[in-house]
C-alpha cells in the first residue's frame, strides 16, 4: 500500500485563466487555432506540466489535468495533450524538442524502421501532424523526434474534424535515443489519461449546452426542460458527467501519488478511459436527443463537444480495449484479489 499524502490543491486562478482563454477561442474554424496556441504559450499553459529546464512552466500534473478538462469542455483546437506527452517522452529519452506545438505517436505495430539516425515507414493517423513542430514517436525500443517536414503527409481527420494525418518517411534523418524500460505501457497510460481528461471536459461541455438549451427551447408552451421526461434524461447525463469527471480526476491523482509505472496507475487510468468513454456515448446520445434536429446540423455548436466525444472515446485505446485489459487484471487477481485490486 502506497503512502497517502496530502496532495497539492489545483490553483483556482489557473483554472479560471484556462476557462477564459478557451472561452475566447474561435471554435468554428478547422485545424490548429494558431491564435489560441499563441495565447497558451504566452500564458504558460502550452507546456504547463513540463519542467522549467525543458522550456516548460513546471506546473503539476494536477494543474495540467484541470486545464485539459477545460480544453475538452471548450473544444479547443490545439494539441495541448499531445504536446505534453511528446515533451514527457522526449525528456524520458534525453532528447530535445523544438518550440511550438508538438505531437506524439505510439507505434505499437512497428510501422517505423529505425536504422541509426534514419527512419523509414508510415505512421497512420498522427494527431495534428500537419501543424506540429516535431513528432515524438515511441517505436520498439527507440524514441524518435521527427521533423514532419522530412515526411510525406496525407491529411486526414477524426469525426470531430481534428487533424489525424498519415506520415511517410523514407530514410529521413531524425534524433533517436533508446526508450526507457517500460516506456510503451507507461506512455500508453499517459496518452489514455490525457484523453480521459479531455473526454471528461467534453462531456461536461455537452451537458452544459444541453441544460442551457432545455431551459430556452419552448415547445407545448413551456421550456422543454420543464418536462420530467427531459429532466430525467439530463439527470442521467449529469450522472455520467460526474462519473467520468471523478474517474479522470481520480486517475490523475493516483498517477501523482504512485507514479505512472505503478500497478495502481494502470487500473486507475484504464478505468478512467473506460468510464469516460462510456460516459461519452451516453452524454452525446442524450445531448442530441434534447437538442432535436438543430443539434444534428453542422451549424450548431453542440457538435463541437459531441463529435469530440465520439472521436476521443476510440482514441488512445478504445474503451473496449482498456476494458479488456482491466478484465485481464481482474482475472489475474482472482476472486480474493478483486477487492484489494480495486482499493489499492
Amino acid at each position: 500500500m502506497s503512502a497517502h499524502t496530502d496532495l497539492p490543491v489545483v490553483d483556482p486562478d489557473l483554472v479560471e485563466l484556462a476557462t477564459s482563454v478557451f472561452a475566447d477561442a474561435d471554435v468554428d474554424g478547422t485545424g490548429l487555432d494558431t491564435a489560441l496556441w499563441d495565447t497558451l504559450e504566452q500564458t504558460g499553459l502550452a507546456r504547463l506540466a513540463v519542467a522549467e529546464d525543458a522550456a516548460g512552466s513546471g506546473g503539476s500534473l494536477l494543474d495540467l489535468a484541470a486545464v485539459l478538462v477545460e480544453a475538452g469542455a471548450g473544444a479547443a483546437r490545439v494539441p495541448l495533450a499531445e504536446t505534453d506527452v511528446a515533451c514527457r517522452l522526449a525528456a524520458a529519452a534525453g532528447l530535445d524538442v523544438p518550440v511550438g506545438p508538438l505531437t506524439f505517436a505510439l507505434d505499437r505495430a512497428g510501422a517505423l524502421t529505425v536504422d541509426g539516425d534514419t527512419v523509414s515507414g508510415t505512421l497512420a493517423r498522427v494527431p495534428w501532424a500537419r501543424s506540429a513542430a516535431a513528432v515524438v514517436v515511441l517505436t520498439g525500443g527507440s524514441v524518435v523526434v521527427l521533423d514532419p517536414a522530412t515526411a510525406t503527409l496525407v491529411e486526414g481527420t477524426n469525426v470531430a474534424e481534428e487533424p489525424r494525418d498519415t506520415l511517410t518517411v523514407d530514410g529521413a534523418s531524425a534524433a533517436v535515443a533508446a526508450a526507457p524500460d517500460g516506456a510503451e505501457s507507461e506512455f500508453a497510460l499517459w496518452a489514455a489519461l490525457s484523453r480521459a481528461l479531455l473526454l471528461a471536459g467534453a462531456a461536461r461541455g455537452a451537458l452544459t449546452r444541453s441544460v442551457g438549451y432545455a431551459g430556452e427551447r419552448e415547445q407545448f408552451g413551456r421550456p422543454i426542460g420543464r418536462f420530467q421526461a427531459v429532466q430525467q434524461q439530463l439527470a442521467l447525463a449529469a450522472a455520467e458527467v460526474a462519473a467520468g469527471g471523478a474517474a479522470a480526476g481520480s486517475a490523475a491523482r493516483v498517477v501523482v501519488r504512485d507514479g505512472v509505472g505503478a500497478p495502481t496507475a494502470e487500473l486507475a487510468v484504464a478505468s478512467a478511459k473506460v468510464r469516460t468513454g462510456e460516459a461519452a456515448t451516453e452524454v452525446a446520445r442524450i445531448a442530441h436527443q434534447v437538442h432535436g434536429a438543430i443539434g444534428f446540423t453542422r451549424e450548431h455548436d453542440l457538435r463541437l463537444t459531441t463529435t469530440r466525444l465520439w472521436a476521443w472515446r476510440d482514441e488512445d485505446g478504445t474503451d473496449g480495449e482498456w476494458a479488456t485489459r482491466i478484465g485481464d487484471l481482474v482475472l489475474a487477481a482472482g476472486a480474493d484479489g478483486l477487492w484489494p485490486l480495486v482499493t489499492a
Partner: peptide, 27 residues
C-alpha cells in the same frame, strides 16, 4: 471472478468484466 478464473473467457467476456470493474473503481 472466481467462476471465470481458469475458464476460457473470450475477449467479449473480459471486456464486460473489465467494464464492470471500471465502473466500480469510478463509483
Amino acid at each position: 471472478v472466481g467462476e471465470l478464473s481458469g475458464a476460457d473467457l473470450g475477449a467479449a467476456g473480459r471486456r464486460q468484466l473489465g467494464s464492470l470493474v471500471a465502473r466500480l473503481w469510478s463509483l
